[in-house]
Simulated scan of single mutants.
Amino acid sequence: MWEASPDGLASRLVESGALTTDWLPAFKAVPRELFVPDVMWPGRSEGVGQGQALDRREEPESWREAVYSDISLTTQWDDGRHVGKGKGTSPTCSNSQPSMVFSMLDALDVQPGCRVLEIGTGTGWNAALLSERVGSRNMTTVEVDPENARRARKSVRDAGYRPTMVVGDGADGWAESAPYDRVLVTASVTGIPAPVIRQSAAGAVIVAPYATTYGGGAVARLTVQRDGSALGPFIASAAFMRLRGHRTSRKHTGDYLGAKEWPADGDRSVTALSPEAVGDWLPMFVIGLLTSGVFPWAERYEDGSYTLWLRDAAVTSWATVDHVPNAPRFVVYQSGPRRLWDEVEAAYAWWESNGFPGYGRLGLTVDPDTGTHTPWLDGPDRPLRALG
C-alpha cells in the first residue's frame, strides 16, 4: 500500500520508471498540492471518468490522498460554465496524472539552458516544474482560458517562479520568446500547429499528445529538421483533453438517415471481423492514421449487444455493424459514396499484415508549410497510404 504523501508518490513513480533521477529534485521542489484547487474531481486509477468532488476544506485527508495518488484531477468543467460540486458535461482542465506528466517531461529531454514553450498551462504544475529545471527566464507557457491562467499564475508565483505566462491560443505559439529548443503540448491535438514548428529551432524536440478523428491517441516525440519539417515516433498511448481549437462537433445519426428509419438505404452484408477487435485504443489509433474524417459511436443495449456506428465528417456516408456476443458473423449496413466499414476492415487488415505494430513502430512527419501530416511505419521512408 502506497503512502499518500510526496515521498510515497515519488517512490511509486520512480519504481514504475516514470520519474527519473534527474527529475526527482524538481518533483521535490514543486509539490503537486500547490497546483490543485480546493475543489477537484479525482480520476480513476483504472479506466476513465471522474469520482465525486473532493473539497479540501471538508475532507482534507481524502483530498490529500487523491493529490498524492497517480491519478488525474479534474479542475474545471465545460470551460468554466459549470459551477458547484456536481459533475459537468465535459472536463476541460485537469492536473494530469503524475506518471504521464513525468514520462512526457523525460521524453522532452530538457537540457540546461533550453528555451521551453508549454502549450496549455492548465493548473501551472508543469510550468513550475520546468521553471525549476531551466530557470524562469527560459520558460514560456500559454493558456487560452483566462480564469485558468489567473489561477495558474498565482500558484506558480506562490511557488517562487516567474516564467513568461501568456493568455492566448497555444496553437499560435508565442513568437516573442522564440526560438524554442523544447515544446511541450499538454492538450491533445489533431495536428501539430505550424506556428509552433516555425518558432522552434533546428534540433528542437516537440512532445505532444496526437489524436486522430477516428479515436485513440498517442504521444508524439518530434524533432525539428533543418528543412523546417518535424518528424519522429509515437512513444506511448495518451488520452488528453483536446486543445480548444481542435475540438470537433458531431452530427446526429438522424442527419445521415434523413427522413428514413435505419437501415434506410444501407446495403446489407456480413463480416467476420468483430467490432470488439477494432474497439481498443491502439487499433482505433491505427485506423485513425489510415482513414480520414471517420469516427465511431457505439449504441449499446441492455442484453450486452451493441451497434457500432461509423460516420464521416462530411455527412455523406455511414455504416453500422451489429455486435452480438459470441456470434461468428456480424451484420453490416453501409450507405453513401464511402464504404466506411470496408475502410475500417482494410485498416485492420493492414495492421494485422504488418504484425500488429505498436506505438514505437509508428511515427509522423509534419510539413508546416503545407500542413501535411504523414504517418509512417518504421521510418519516414515507409509512409502510410490513406484508405479513404
Score class of each variant (00 low, 15 high):
171 A>H: 09
128 A>D: 05
196 V>I: 15
185 V>W: 08
194 A>R: 12
132 E>M: 09
122 G>R: 06
107 A>Y: 13
159 A>L: 08
180 Y>F: 15
199 Q>C: 06
162 R>P: 00
135 G>F: 09
198 R>V: 03
195 P>M: 08
143 E>G: 13
161 Y>A: 00
136 S>I: 00
166 V>D: 02
129 L>H: 07
193 P>K: 11
162 R>H: 12
178 A>M: 04
163 P>T: 01
140 T>L: 11
144 V>C: 12
147 E>Q: 13
210 Y>E: 06
115 R>H: 14
149 A>K: 00
207 V>I: 12
143 E>R: 11
209 P>K: 08
196 V>N: 07
209 P>M: 10
148 N>K: 06
205 V>G: 01
144 V>H: 14
222 L>A: 04
175 A>R: 15
154 K>N: 07
168 G>W: 10
215 G>F: 05
220 A>F: 02
217 G>F: 10
206 I>Q: 02
198 R>S: 12
131 S>C: 10
174 W>A: 02
140 T>I: 07
170 G>W: 13
175 A>T: 07
125 W>T: 05
220 A>P: 02
206 I>F: 04
218 A>L: 01
146 P>R: 10
150 R>S: 14
212 T>P: 03
137 R>Q: 13
213 T>N: 10
213 T>P: 01
113 G>E: 04
181 D>Q: 14
173 G>C: 06
207 V>S: 05
188 S>H: 02
165 M>N: 02
164 T>R: 15
118 E>C: 07
169 D>L: 11
108 L>F: 03
141 T>Q: 02
140 T>P: 04
200 S>Y: 04
200 S>I: 06
190 T>A: 13
169 D>W: 07
120 G>W: 04
181 D>K: 00
127 A>E: 00
135 G>D: 06
185 V>C: 14
114 C>R: 01
173 G>L: 10
152 A>L: 11
205 V>E: 00
204 A>C: 09
179 P>Y: 08
183 V>S: 08
222 L>V: 03
153 R>F: 00
215 G>P: 01
143 E>S: 10
221 R>N: 06
219 V>W: 09
113 G>D: 08
139 M>R: 07
130 L>V: 15
146 P>V: 12
186 T>M: 11
199 Q>E: 14
188 S>P: 04
110 V>K: 08
147 E>I: 12
219 V>K: 02
185 V>G: 06
223 T>R: 14
141 T>N: 09
182 R>W: 05
204 A>S: 14
197 I>W: 04
